[in-house]
Computed example of a mutant assay.
Amino acid sequence: MAVVSVQQVSKVYGHRFSLVNALNNISFDIEPWEFVGIMGPSGAGKTTLLNMIATIDRPTHGQVLIKDQVVSRMREAKLANFRRQDLGFIFQDFNLLDSLTVRENMLLPLALDKLSVPVIEKRLDKVSRVLGISSLLDRYPDEVSIGQRQRVACGRAMITNPTLLLADEPTGSLDSKSATELLQYLTVINRQEKTTILLVTHDAFTASYCRRILFIKDGQLFSEIVRNGDRQQFFNQIIDMQATIGGGGRFNAVTPNR
């Protein structure tokens, strides 16, 4: 059973005389434990598609299923619980609360779950060890580096054991060293914790950590590539596809050896 099934999804904005087709009849599945990226030129519909899957927005036509549930038709009360229990979100700007410690920020998603203290502590210990932030738990966000803040945000997304981890340009605010560290941690989460990840990015280096890339152009699914060789080879394939759809070329790309 697919974790995500996007079925003939279209999204239209505007009024009768000024309609904009942000997405046009897109269909694909994401299988359990996949690490999938979405790429495309600016304005292609990447974020709109992510919002459909994240239940932040609803399609004009078609439907989105997560774990065989039609989330695009769920009522808001049920949807709120579904988001909290089954979806994890990593944002480019972290969205951490400065008045709370790292520990408190990470535990926020569990506040309504009425879990026992031993269960909470076990989850916190596991996630913080995987992400290498166990020593930071009693610090505040402004006392840690930008890369560490993003790992804290990642830990907050993982603490609920989500069915699907959604990341929107997660390396956009990071320097190359911090970005590499975060992507390596996401790879560990995907492989060792069996977490299904969907990542939106415009950056070929970031995308090269995925196992499959869906390319969107003008609101439509343009192509996809699957990683069969090493990451350098996959990076080159991504650059070539970006050039094909007008999103960049090999000579203005950043080398992945960083």
Rank of each mutant, 00 (worst) to 15 (best):
M106I: 13
S27Q: 10
L164T: 02
A243E: 14
Y185D: 10
R83K: 09
A253P: 05
P170T: 06
A253F: 04
N25H: 15
A157G: 06
F215V: 00
F251E: 15
N95M: 05
L124P: 05
A243R: 14
M74D: 02
F94N: 08
I239T: 13
A22W: 13
T244V: 09
Y140I: 01
M39L: 11
K114Q: 14
A204E: 04
S27R: 15
D29E: 15
T195S: 08
M39F: 03
P32D: 06
E193V: 08
L19R: 15
Q85N: 13
V200D: 06
T187E: 11
L49H: 03
Q92C: 05
S223K: 15
A243Y: 11
K177F: 07
F89G: 04
K122E: 04
S5R: 15
Q150M: 08
T160R: 14
R123H: 05
F94G: 05
R123L: 00
K122T: 04
R103V: 00
Q8L: 11
E143P: 06
V6C: 10
I133A: 05
D98E: 10
G249W: 14
T201Q: 04
A77Q: 12
I66E: 01
T196E: 01
R123N: 04
D86F: 10
I225T: 06
G249V: 09
C210M: 03
D230G: 06
G132F: 04
S116G: 07
F251K: 14
Y185N: 11
T201E: 08
E181M: 13
I189T: 03
F35S: 02
I238H: 01
T195D: 01
G40Q: 10
L214N: 09
V254G: 07
M1V: 12
I53M: 11
G14H: 12
R151A: 01
S145K: 09
K46E: 03
V9C: 07
